[in-house]
Nucleic acid binder design. Structure first.
Lengths: 329, 329
DNA sequence: TTGTAGGCGTTATCAA
DNA sequence: TTGATAACGCCTACAA
C-alpha cells in the first residue's frame, strides 16, 4: 500500500508551504514572503518576482492564515454575534454596512450564531480569536461572558437604539390621534424578545404617563399567521374595545393590516395600526417609527473602527427615531 | 511618560500566554496544556489542576486560536459563503441546521458575505483558512476561484435543489388547471438571480413542451411594492390576458395576492398564483411547491460531515420538491 | 505525575 | 537585491 494514490480516503497531501515555494524557486523563504505580500520597502528584481509567483501558483501554494496570525500576534477577523440568522431588514442592512467598511480596512467580517446552550464563550474562543467582537442587538452578552474577550475588544450594538423611546412614540402618537384604549402586538420569536420587551416597556410607560390603562398585549408569531386573527379577536373582545394597536415592528403590523383586510376591515379606519422600522414594504401605507439606518450604521461603524484603532469611541448621542405618518394610523 | 498607565491609546497589554500561567503556577507549560485541554490520557493531581485553572483565570489567560491551529495544522472553522445576509427562510433554516450539526462535532460555522468585487478568494484566504467551505445557493463559485481552496474542501449547495424542476411543476400544475396563458414574477433582487433564472427556465421549458407561449415575465422587487401593481397591470394588459402567474417564491406570491386584494380581486379566482418554498406565512392559503427543508438539510449536513471526515460524499438523489395545493391556484 | 524540547508556517530583523 | 535566523503561542512525544 503506497501513499501515492489519490483516493478520497487518503490523508490529504501535506500543505504546500512558502518554504516549498522557496526551495522550488531556489530563493529564500524571506524573498518568497516579500514577493507574496508585496512588501513596499523591498526592491525585488522582476525576474525573481515573476519566478516566485509562477512557482507558487504551480505548486498551488495558499497562505495559511493561522501561521500569519500567530506571527503578527493578531487576526484580522471581526466576529459579529447574532442570536439568529433571520435577523430582520434593519440589522441585515447594518451588517452589510459594517462588512463593507471593514473590508476596506482589511478586515473580514464573519457572522456567528451564538447560542450559549450550544457552546460557551470560552469554547468559542479556542476556535476563533477575532480582533473584535460585535454583539448584535437581540443578543445580551453578560459581563461574565465578555470577560473571555480579554485583550479583545467588544462592541455591544444593543442599547444604542432607544427601543423604549420607539414604544413611547407609538403610544403618544396614537393618544394624540384620540385613541384611549391601546393594544400591543408582541412577537413570539425568541430572538426578538430582548428588543420587544424594551419597546413594550416604552408603550407601558407612555400609557401610564398619559393616564391610560396598560395596553392589551397579544402575541403574534410571524411564522404562524393564525395568531394574527386570534389577536384581532382578542382586541375586539376586550372589556373596553381596543381602537389602536402598536406593533413590535412593521412586519407584524403588515400582517395585522392583511388580517383586517381578510375580514373586510381597513387599517386606519376600523383599527389604527402603527409599526416600527420603516421596512420597504411598509412604505406604501404604513404609519411607523423609522429607525434611521444610515445614521445608526455610520455611528456603529465609526465606533467599531475606533475600537480597532485603540481610540476612544465617540459616545453616540442621536436617537435615530422619527415618526412617519401614513394611512394606517 | 511611563507605560504603566491604562489609557485607551496605550498599546494593549501583552497577551497572557499559557507559559505565563505555567510560570505563575510553578508548573511546566505541558502541564498547563494538559489541564486546559482536559487531555484524557494524563493523570493530573487535583491540586495542580485547581491551581492551574485558578491561575489562568486570575491572569485572564485566553487561548490564542491561531497558535493552536498552526500547531494542529488545521482550523475548526467552517466558512459558509453567502451572497447576501437576507438569504430567505429556507436558506436560513439550512444554515441553522448546519450550524447545530457542526457545533456537535466541534466546529464553528462562520457566515461570510462573499463579494468578489470587494475581495478576491485568495485575499479571503490570507485572512481565514477554514477546514471547509460551504458555498450557499445563490453564489456561483467558479472553478478558478475554487482553486484557491487548495487542500481545503468545498461543498456547493447550489445545484442540489432542482430549481428548474420547481418551475416545471408550477407550469404543469397551472396547465392542468386549464390555464393557457401564463405570467412569471421574477425577483429584481440581485442575490436571487442565479436561482431565479433556473426556475424561470423550468417554466419556459414546460411551456414549450405543453405548446404554450412563453410566460409573460414581469420583474417584482420585494423592496418596492409598487412593482407588484405594475406587474398586475402588465399581465392584465397582455395581448392574450394572463390568467395564471408562477412566482419565483412565496414571498413574492404573497405580495401578488395582497396587490390583488388591494384592487378588490382575489387570488385563485381572478388570477391564479403559485409560489415556491412553502414558507410559514404561505401556509394559510397559498398554492406552492414545497422544498423539503428537513430532507434537504439532512442531505447537506451528511455531505458536509463526510467531507470533513475525508470520506466520499453520498450523491444526493432525492429532489425535495412537492406540490401543495391550497386556495390561490 | 510532571518536565523538556521541538516544530507548525509566517514574517521582522539583521546581515551579506 | 537577497539570505539566514529567530521568534509568535501552542501541543505532544518522550523522558524523568
Amino acid at each position: 500500500m503506497t501513499n501515492e494514490t489519490d483516493q478520497a480516503t487518503t490523508v490529504p497531501a501535506r500543505r504546500v508551504t512558502s518554504a516549498d515555494v522557496a526551495k522550488a524557486s531556489g530563493v529564500s523563504r524571506a524573498t518568497v514572503s516579500y514577493v507574496l505580500n508585496d512588501v513596499p520597502g523591498r526592491a525585488i528584481s522582476e525576474a525573481t518576482r515573476a519566478l516566485v509567483l509562477r512557482t507558487a501558483s504551480e505548486l498551488g501554494h495558499v497562505p495559511f492564515a493561522p501561521a500569519r496570525s500567530l506571527r503578527l500576534g493578531r487576526s484580522d477577523i471581526v466576529l459579529a454575534l447574532v442570536r439568529d440568522f433571520a435577523i430582520g431588514f434593519v440589522s441585515n442592512r447594518l451588517l452589510k454596512r459594517l462588512d463593507v467598511a471593514l473590508a476596506e480596512r482589511g478586515y473580514v467580517m464573519l457572522v456567528h450564531r451564538f447560542d450559549d446552550s450550544l457552546r460557551s464563550m470560552s469554547e468559542l474562543w479556542g476556535l476563533v480569536s477575532p480582533a473584535l467582537v460585535v454583539a448584535m442587538g437581540g443578543l445580551a452578552v453578560t459581563d461574565e461572558a465578555a470577560s473571555h474577550f480579554s485583550s479583545t475588544k467588544l462592541m455591544r450594538v444593543h442599547g444604542i437604539v432607544p427601543h423604549a423611546k420607539a414604544g413611547e412614540m407609538q403610544a403618544q402618537y396614537l393618544y394624540d390621534r384620540g385613541h384611549r384604549v391601546l393594544g400591543y402586538a408582541f412577537p413570539s420569536t425568541a430572538s426578538l424578545e430582548l428588543i420587544a420587551s424594551e419597546r413594550l416597556a416604552g408603550v407601558r410607560r407612555a400609557c401610564e404617563r398619559l393616564g391610560l390603562e396598560p395596553p392589551v398585549v397579544c402575541n403574534v408569531d410571524p411564522d404562524n399567521p393564525e395568531t394574527v386573527f386570534d389577536a384581532l379577536d382578542a382586541w375586539a373582545a376586550a372589556p373596553e374595545k381596543v381602537t389602536a394597536v402598536a406593533s413590535h415592528n412593521d412586519e407584524i403590523a403588515i400582517m395585522l393590516t392583511a388580517g383586517l383586510a381578510a375580514r373586510g376591515l381597513t387599517a386606519g379606519k376600523d383599527l389604527a395600526v402603527i409599526g416600527v422600522d420603516n421596512i420597504p414594504s411598509a412604505r406604501i401605507n404604513l404609519t411607523t417609527v423609522e429607525i434611521d439606518i444610515d445614521a445608526w450604521g455610520d455611528a456603529i461603524v465609526d465606533n467599531v473602527l475606533a475600537l480597532l484603532d485603540n481610540k476612544e469611541p465617540e459616545p453616540i448621542a442621536t436617537d435615530f427615531l422619527r415618526l412617519i405618518v401614513r394611512d394606517t394610523a
